[in-house]
Amino acid sequence: MAKADKDEGGWGKLIRDVVVIVLLVLGIHSCVAKPFYIPSDSMMPGLRNGDRLVVSKYPYGWSYASVSFHLAPKMAGRLFGKLPARGDIVVLEHPVTRVDYIKRVIGLPGDTIELKGGALFINGKPVKREVQPMLSIPVDANLPGPDSSLGRFIVKDAAGKEVLELPIVRETLPGGATFDTIDMGPGYQTDDYGPIKIPADHLFLMGDNRDGSADSRVSVQQKGLGGPVPFDAIAGRAEIISFSTDGTAIWYNPVSWFEALRPGRAGTNLRPEHDKGAK
């Protein structure tokens, strides 16, 4: 009898330990930080398909979207809520499908957003745009990503290797946040939009790959966000790239895990730079 009691105690302790560990992981994921995988090219050039990020959960307070694995029922309200800044990269739950998206905050509550021929206007004023030199990025198994619109920019470099030669435009938002975008030229559906005034407690989100992003400019039927997004849908802020892989890793070959790492990506800070002279 004593042995049976001991065995039951052992199993009971194991179950309790497993439950505690699961709750601890869920708590950290939901309240502090969680990993995030970039599955597309919508945030190119800064974020690439295959990047792994650390997303902090506390900068904007907590809502139903903060709870990992979409376990919480949707409800209004945010604990210790603080609006993002223009230029922040945020992870959110799609307001309808509850699928995770990652986009950049472009407009805040009360802002009027408009695009004309691909040029962004905020509150009637054009956002500063500066054309940059073409950006060359090596093509690999993860890049371009699935369903990407960037395939037409693949060329061969002097060594005969395939690279993406991307047209880059640097934007500077009101407040000074500055970052690079891809502008593939005229003729895209998302080049002209609005004007639209952002309602209270909503945000206007866009991808940096401006002509290849299903964001606030795109209808839900086309897998977009269908307009400004409720602040409560924001789950956290993208902080840093932890590591990035080129898509060649084989799960049963640990050596390939290291060979697939992209050099120079780990440790990249995802907070936007700021132009101190901008207003």
Rank of each mutant, 00 (worst) to 15 (best):
H70G: 14
K279H: 10
K279Q: 13
S40Q: 00
A159T: 13
G46E: 12
I250W: 11
D232S: 13
S42L: 07
S219M: 05
G176M: 05
L164V: 05
I240N: 06
M134R: 14
I89E: 05
L26Y: 01
R86E: 09
F243P: 05
G50V: 04
T190V: 15
A65L: 04
K279M: 11
M134P: 11
D180A: 06
D111A: 05
V67S: 01
A72V: 05
V54N: 06
G224E: 03
K6T: 13
V169Q: 13
M75V: 13
I106A: 08
S63Y: 02
D232V: 11
G176S: 04
L143D: 02
S63T: 11
E93V: 07
E162S: 14
W251P: 02
G9R: 10
D100T: 13
V218E: 05
A260V: 01
A278V: 08
L108C: 04
G212T: 00
M75S: 15
V25M: 06
G110R: 02
P109K: 05
M134I: 14
G176E: 03
E130Y: 05
R98H: 15
I154W: 00
T112D: 03
D17L: 12
G107D: 07
G46S: 15
Y252A: 06
S256C: 08
P126K: 11
S63I: 01
V139I: 09
E259G: 02
V20W: 12
E8G: 12
W251A: 11
K103Y: 00
G175A: 03
K3T: 12
L115D: 10
P199Y: 03
W257S: 00
H274R: 14
E162W: 08
V18T: 14
S213Y: 01
D140T: 02
H94C: 03
